[in-house]
Computed example of a mutant assay.
Amino acid sequence: MKIDLNQYGLTDQLKRFAAGVPDFTLARVTEQHRETYQVISVTGFLPAEIAGKLRHDLTVTTDFPAVGDWVLITVAPDHQLALIQQVLPRQSVLERAAVSKTGAGQIIAANVDTIFICMSLNANFNVHRVERYLTMAWDSGAVPVVVLTKADLCTDVPAKLEALADVTLGVDVVACSARTGAGVASLKTYVTGNRTVSFIGSSGVGKSTLINDLLGSDVLITKEIRADDDKGRHTTTSRELLRLPTGGVVIDTPGMRELQVQGGDLTKAFADITTLASQCKFRNCTHQTEPGCAVQAAIAMGKLDTRRLESYRKLQLELSYSDMSARERENAKIQRFFGSKKEMKRTMDHVQKIRRR
């Protein structure tokens, strides 16, 4: 029986592209486990590896196949293994900076239409974390939706929504509870036809539980947040693409305890500040002490929270480092804190003299 790839997000553009390369088979990456993959084509699921030529040509880690990618494959004569020959251009890509010191980015999911940014309404609630996720989501090319989980554990949901009001300008916010079912139906309206959605958020916020609700069965393992500190336990350890019975597909991702922004669209994530900045007297205004600064004027009038501006500056600085090599980042930090390496050495020598006394 042939698989209908329309149910896995196939578009007319991809169909036309595949028709021009009859020697290859179109497939979508549904799972990734280090250097091995699982793909689905019209013939069904197959384990897959990267073909030797493609592996040789790939020089950047973010160019390697990721869950959600559409790829061209060839299949071994015994139909037991697929070789990925080409990764097709991505319509969107959700990426974060690597936690390691390599500086290489990490693809979370590819070709996503809607990103559900999940955060629980308990001690995990953090406005600045939502800002960071939105920065990353807007940069991906997908549409973000903020999902506030465990609403049944929150005594004042409207207050939480008010706290997020400035951060979520132009973004849908859904408060829901997997335990009571409240709000879950609203999520289903975003997953229709051949659309792809992805859930991201910290460990234990309830992503897997919500996905199970969408699937209609307990496919994914779930665990509660620890009661003593509200920190989550990792339940999802790899990325996986799943088809929903009502249409559309969902990509589950491991919880992120450390979120470093690889790229980001501050124009959309901080639309209030960028709009104000366009009204500043000087085009290169740093929004600190310059005369005619519309941002500082808004703060003085109580229209903009100082903490919001601090978050903007912090992310702006982080993004300026994201495209640098490890050495360039180190030099930039030295320049920022000391002015030069020579001045840093003088400072360190001075500290050492004080310690010797």
Rank of each mutant, 00 (worst) to 15 (best):
29 V>I: 08
340 S>C: 00
204 G>D: 06
149 T>F: 02
235 T>I: 02
59 T>F: 13
266 L>N: 00
248 G>K: 00
123 A>R: 15
39 V>N: 11
232 G>M: 04
19 A>P: 08
65 P>A: 06
246 T>P: 04
324 M>F: 00
130 V>Y: 02
278 S>Q: 09
288 Q>R: 13
65 P>E: 02
52 G>H: 04
81 L>F: 08
322 S>Q: 09
198 S>G: 08
44 G>Q: 04
32 Q>L: 11
146 V>M: 08
240 E>G: 05
12 D>A: 14
39 V>A: 10
100 S>D: 15
301 M>R: 15
236 T>D: 02
350 H>W: 11
226 R>P: 02
97 A>C: 11
173 V>W: 14
292 G>D: 00
322 S>W: 07
16 R>D: 12
178 A>P: 08
156 D>P: 11
158 P>E: 05
270 F>G: 05
81 L>P: 14
187 L>G: 07
319 L>P: 15
103 G>Y: 00
305 D>W: 10
201 G>H: 03
291 P>C: 03
333 K>N: 07
105 G>I: 04
60 V>L: 15
340 S>T: 00
60 V>H: 15
238 S>V: 09
308 R>K: 09
210 L>C: 04
122 N>D: 15
190 Y>Q: 12
39 V>E: 10
285 C>H: 04
214 L>S: 00
161 L>F: 07
205 V>L: 09
2 K>N: 14
331 N>P: 02
236 T>S: 11
268 K>I: 01
255 G>M: 02
153 L>D: 13
137 A>M: 01
102 T>C: 07
32 Q>T: 10
44 G>L: 03
351 V>L: 12
192 T>C: 03
162 E>C: 01
328 E>Q: 15
57 D>C: 06
208 S>G: 04
57 D>L: 13
197 V>S: 06
146 V>F: 09
72 L>G: 05
178 A>D: 10
72 L>F: 03
329 R>M: 10
318 E>F: 07
74 T>G: 13
178 A>G: 12
286 T>Q: 12
52 G>R: 02
178 A>Y: 04
60 V>E: 15
151 A>Y: 01
214 L>Y: 03
120 S>R: 04
201 G>Y: 02
251 I>H: 08
323 D>V: 11
212 N>P: 10
244 L>P: 12
255 G>V: 00
205 V>T: 09
288 Q>I: 11
